[in-house]
């Protein structure tokens, strides 16, 4: 599904130049569950942003489903993103002004799904993450774990092929964290490819393969299965 070669990302500020990704190579196959680990500042989030088409690389190639997307413009990226990719963030990033239901509904609105269809699909996915009974609550009225489950629900409601999760358990205690990891594993078992950044060896063990990064490069890979 993903094939990256010689990928570079350089941040330039007035004084310094940070090489966030340095000629990075990596591959993710359909249906895989990959964990990315590494010390703080090694470029994990940068990589995830590029994988999620939120950002573009400075050099190198990024094949997504055998299409070169490294130089897609913003419009094309947004289009590809909304049909194929779901995101889960450390800080949940739910919209405070919208209810649980409306937050999850949002991606469907942007992909133009009809209202009746939306209702069915949102309810189905809320059921799946066991948060249906809270559908009319606002994010602040939920616990951290519940919020993250909503975020996961939002990430999968469009049936994306790929879910990108950046430290999804970073703000959760271990029991809530495990619930979320459980959920991701189920999704993966149903065929969704997952790339997850984490600092926790415990969480990483839910994945099939761990990619370890240092200074913008992949250093080792552990196959876990």
């Amino acid at each position: 599904m993903i094939k990256i070669s010689q990928l570079e990302k350089i941040y330039r500020t007035e004084e310094v130049e940070t090489i966030a990704l340095n000629k990075l190579n990596m591959e993710v196959n359909d249906g895989e569950f990959v964990a990315v680990m590494g010390p703080s500042g090694c470029g994990k989030s940068t990589l995830l942003n590029i994988l999620g088409l939120l950002d573009d690389p400075d050099a190198g190639s990024f094949m997504f489903n055998n299409i070169e997307v490294a130089h897609f413009n913003e419009r094309k990226r947004a289009d590809l993103r909304k049909h194929n990719i779901g995101f889960v963030f450390q800080s949940f990033n739910l919209i405070d002004e919208l209810t649980v239901f409306e937050n999850v509904e949002l991606p469907l609105i942007y992909t133009g799904v009809k209202s009746a269809d939306r209702k069915k699909r949102v309810e189905a996915v809320l059921d799946k993450v066991q948060i249906m009974h809270r559908r009319n609550h606002y994010p602040q009225q939920l616990s951290g774990g519940q919020q993250q489950r909503v975020a996961v629900a939002r990430a999968v409601v469009n049936n994306p092929k790929l879910i990108l999760a950046d430290e999804p358990t970073g703000n959760l205690d271990s029991s809530n964290g495990n619930e979320v990891m459980q959920l991701l594993t189920e999704l993966n078992e149903q065929g969704t490819t997952i790339v997850m950044v984490t600092h926790s060896e415990h969480d990483a063990r839910y994945s099939h393969r761990i990619i370890r990064m240092l200074d913008g490069q992949t250093v080792t890979q552990n196959i876990l299965i």
Binding site: G52, L54, E74, R75, A78, D79, R81, K82, H83, F87, N93, L94, I95, D96, E97, L106, P107, Y110, T111, R154
Partner: peptide, 16 residues
Amino acid sequence: AKEIGVRKVVGAMRGV
């Protein structure tokens, strides 16, 4: 800002 960021991540185009 957060709302806008989230909307963009889940697929909102600028025009929208």
